[in-house]
Computed example of a mutant assay.
Amino acid sequence: MAAPVAGFAAEDVNVYSYRQPYLIQPLIDAFSEETGIKVNVVFAKQGILERLEREGRNSPADVVLTVDIGRLDELASKDLSLAVDSETLNKNIPAEYRHPEGKWFGLTRRARVIYTSKDRVEEGEITRYEDLADNRWNDRVCTRSGKQDYNVALIASMIAHHGEAETEKWLRGLKDNLARKPQGGDRDQIRAIAEGVCDVAVGNSYYYGVMLSDPEQKGPAEAARLVFPNQDGRGTHVNLSGAAIAKHAPNRENAMAFLEFLSGEEAQQMYADLNYEYPVREGVTPASIVSEWGDFKADDLPLDEIAKYREAAVKMVDRVGYDN
């Protein structure tokens, strides 16, 4: 976040982004080519919300790009994003993937899936998140930290569906089944399956696509099977990457044009092909690797409802000592 504010120009569109530059640069280039609007980007792994709060009305930020429903919800709950009503955004983005007052909009979906060893787990042997707590998986499950944003969102979704008491029982059972202390990222869980450390893991779907498309990572990925959980019930939990217009955006028309472009067919197809994510816009075809996994039923519980339980989920992770 060290880029100077003076580097931002009026009549451009100024973006604060949690998304890595290489993931969004092709989209930015396409937008600028189509509209003639220059996009200025500051990238940070953390601290964007705090910077917006500190800058207040003097902030040059027009758009915030981020990942995870928790960060999107914080933008709205801390009154850092502008409520907007766009016919284009409302048409392109299903209601469950946007804030009811237009304070944020989902741009891509990433399914929180289960990975299993092709050699040591039979197909169909595990089909639900709830199965992760079954004692048949004792010492056989790997996950990253329970406090990582995507796991917090998954636990929050379990609370939304089952209540706190039942979810805590489930989380304790999952902890008892861990093969090792929670660690690493989602791709590390897939590698752990290939290395025989565990037989079952939890991760985001697009990492699987990234690994399969990379010759250096393809081997470990091919040792694992992707499972979309809860297909006979509520469906698989999904999280989002998304965007919001900053509360004090100086270039609101350009900001709106940028968001509407990102929700359009061209940008949605680029998201799918470049990042192996699922577009939020209906009718856009996933990347060929992703299409090979087949269609899946997504949990249609609105993500702003799930976000209400994030704080309870974090406290639960501490209470059960999940990361210990």
Rank of each mutant, 00 (worst) to 15 (best):
D119Y: 09
Y150L: 10
G321C: 06
N275T: 13
A221T: 08
T116N: 01
A246M: 02
Q148R: 15
N324E: 15
V284L: 02
P302F: 03
N92F: 07
W170G: 10
R19T: 08
G242C: 10
R310D: 07
A9F: 10
E164V: 14
H99P: 02
L212A: 01
G146E: 11
T116V: 03
V152S: 05
A224N: 03
G124A: 07
R54C: 08
L259Q: 07
Y309W: 13
A246W: 05
T108H: 04
L132V: 03
I306H: 08
K103N: 07
A201Y: 00
Y208M: 06
R54L: 12
Y271D: 07
P100S: 07
G124Y: 05
V227Q: 00
E53T: 09
F261M: 04
L212E: 02
D273W: 12
I69L: 15
T116L: 01
R128M: 13
Y16W: 09
I193T: 04
V15D: 01
L52W: 04
R57Y: 13
K297G: 02
N40E: 12
G47Q: 02
R187V: 14
K297F: 01
S77V: 12
Y278R: 15
D131P: 03
K78H: 09
S77T: 10
I93W: 07
Q231L: 02
D149Q: 15
D139Q: 11
N239S: 15
A30K: 08
A10P: 13
E164S: 12
M158E: 14
L262I: 14
L89H: 03
